[in-house]
Amino acid sequence: MAATSAVLQSEWTKIRSVRSTVWTLALAFLVTLALGAIICAVFNSQWSSMSDSDKATFDPTNTSFFGMTLGQLALIVFGVLVISSEYSTGMIRTSLAAVPQRGHFYASKVLVAGLLALVVGMVTSFLTFFLGQALLGSHHASIGDPGVFRAVFGAGLYMTLIVLFCVGTAAMLRSPMLGLGILMPFFFLVSPILTAVPKVKSVARYFPDQAGQKIMQVVPDSDSHTSYGPWGGIGIMAIWVAVVLIGGYAVLKRRDA
């Protein structure tokens, strides 16, 4: 067996030495931060015209994470490209010739991508929260309020899990076109739309993104359900991630490179 630290180091060199890593993660950070900030500023200036019920259910923490819907698209691109670019470029043959223990190679790649996503996710979620709250003026939440720290930390976890979900899916699909073509519309359109459809939504709320997003809510919204709590939601998402990562491993292990 090649040494674990050596393979991790190699995967780190790989991930840091391509441009797509920098621009996808930078984009995810900027979009999430900027969009959250704009929405917070808008709410602050429009506060007087909001209805009383809206004011009652206003969730300052979750509002600052509004930009996540778009920001996660850049994370999807990152997660998909981390693994599928190996296939599209032919690099996979060089990689597996260097590390023929495929499980080892795969675990290292997943770990490096996951850790990087965790760092970027946490930085993004905390900065987004603090900037958003600053712009909300007197309507802001404080990190010490009940459930707020959990929501902000959870937002970072959510971003990490989205990336890992995409890594696993892309490992199964082995093609960037296929991976992006399926995951982008799913997370941007299919999942949010299905969650709004009556009856279907009782199933759709178990989709990875819908379940995971629960952790970012501090104040329950109007049509909130109690089938799972914030940690239950992120747990459901983690199960999805584990399943696709195992699926990705099975494909890598079995198929010819």
């Binding site: 995967e11 060199t13 790989k14 470029t89 690099m91 260097a98």
Partner: peptide, 15 residues
């Protein structure tokens, strides 16, 4: 069998 976005040096370095 090379990622075109990586420099020659980094390609060899990761190997």
């Amino acid at each position: 069998a090379i990622h075109g976005g990586r420099t020659a040096y980094n390609h060899l370095l990761c190997m």
